[in-house]
Amino acid sequence: MTNPSLPAYNFAYLDEQTKRMIRRAILKAIAVPGYQVPFASRDMPMPYGWGTGGVQVTASILGPDDVLKVIDQGADDTTNAVSIRAFFAKVADVATTTRTEDATIIQTRHRIPETPLAHGQIIVYQVPIPEPLRFLEPRETETRVMHALEEYGLVHVKLYEDIAQHGHIATTYAYPVKVEGRYVMDPSPIPKFDNPKMHHSPALQLFGAGREKRIYALPPFTDVVSLDFEDHPFTVQRFDCRCALCDAQDVYMDEVITDDRGGRMFVCSDTDHCETRRSEGCQGAGLPQHCTAKAGWEAAE
């Protein structure tokens, strides 16, 4: 029996035909901000739900001169981020970095870096469920009509129910936004803390959902407004403590459980931000501390 010929791969894994198809979808998405463009998502060498959409978008826009940063939960060193970064280092031989300002392309899962993005950068979001109406209406044929006719009342019914039952809008991540006053969009499961960073960002923001076969985009300086009520305005989480490592405040924190007696500490979710501050001489308290996250509605009171 003969051995099958060993596989060889194109630059950045995808063949050029596929990249062209995806680039066309990206261009359409940029032309219609917030609109979910169907694309013929390919089987990728990583599992669905692990960033196949983001990886396809990144593979299609990546050039040999790009500098790639990959984060998951804000961190460069979480296993899936390491794995995706290694994938591109292998199949595209591109330079990689952990520094936000050095990257030309940042692929992310669940966070937007604390360092403001700059003109010329592209951030690629991995998206599990692109349809903001999915959990209100499971049927794709119906949600497409709802988007087409701007029938978004149901989203507010959900927010209304949150307030009626909990006193607050109980959506803390994947918080729906309205883009340029037209399409309601799922920002991917970033915490709502990061929502304001999308508004008028000078960077190009691309969203890829592999399993659901959708690409959408926010061109630079797009209006991105989180949905709310006039008398229950959108607010973000605030942490009334400082990072134990770098003393940062007004950033998104990870809670770390330090022992089995309730000891915990808070550190920056964005590891690059934290490391940069520490290299500049900032130092946090280090010890476990007691800190409560305060939501914005409290801070406003």
């Binding site: 599992p47 739900g49 669940h110 915490p191 998104y252 996250a293």
Partner: peptide, 23 residues
Amino acid sequence: GFVEHLKLPHYVDFQAELDLLRT
């Protein structure tokens, strides 16, 4: 893939839920 992606870290979203629940 999608079922198993639940084992990937979800710290950030869980933190957001945890804060709301505590509030």
